[in-house]
Computed example of a mutant assay.
Amino acid sequence: MTTTAAAVYEKGVLRPLSPLPLAEGARVEVTVTDEIAQGIPGAMTGRAGVELARLWSAMPHLSSEEAAAFEDDLFGPER
């Protein structure tokens, strides 16, 4: 079975944002894709990208327009 699920990384643990169809104690293989870098050419990676992802996830109060402006400030409007 293959399932894609959104998760948040907190205190060293990935926490799924919704329930997963798994039995308790099931072993899984995890592939992580940074939400910020996904599909953005030239997106920041490494330590800076991780820090930006942490900051981004702490800003759920942004409207879609504010989020777009924030991304433009980070990556440039021509991304």
Rank of each mutant, 00 (worst) to 15 (best):
A5E: 06
A58C: 07
R27F: 12
T33F: 14
A5F: 05
L74S: 00
A48G: 01
R27D: 07
G49A: 01
E29K: 12
F70H: 12
V8Q: 08
M1N: 11
Y9K: 07
D72H: 13
A69N: 14
M59D: 06
T3K: 12
L14M: 11
E65Y: 03
L55S: 08
A68V: 03
S64V: 12
R54H: 11
G12N: 03
E35L: 10
D34V: 04
A7Q: 05
L20W: 07
V32G: 02
A7T: 06
G42E: 05
A69P: 09
G46A: 02
S18Q: 14
V50M: 02
T4Y: 04
E24D: 10
P16H: 07
T2I: 14
S63Q: 10
T3Y: 14
T2E: 12
W56G: 05
T4V: 06
P41K: 02
D73I: 05
M1E: 09
V30Y: 04
F75G: 06
E24T: 08
E29I: 09
A68T: 06
A69Q: 15
I40W: 08
T2F: 14
R15I: 11
V13F: 04
E51H: 13
W56K: 15
M1S: 10
T31Q: 11
G42Q: 11
P41N: 04
L55V: 15
V13L: 11
F70G: 05
A69T: 08
E71F: 15
E71D: 03
E65F: 08
M44F: 15
P60N: 03
F75T: 01
R79W: 09
E78V: 06
P60H: 12
P41H: 03
V30R: 07
A67Y: 09
A43R: 06
G76R: 05
E10F: 14
R47D: 15
S64W: 03
R15V: 15
D73F: 10
A5D: 02
P41R: 10
S64I: 02
P60F: 13
F70D: 11
I40M: 04
E71N: 03
E71M: 13
I40C: 04
L74G: 01
T31C: 01
T45Y: 10
G76K: 00
P41V: 01
W56L: 08
A48S: 05
T4L: 11
T3M: 08
E78C: 01
V30D: 01
A69C: 07
I40D: 00
M59Y: 07
P21G: 09
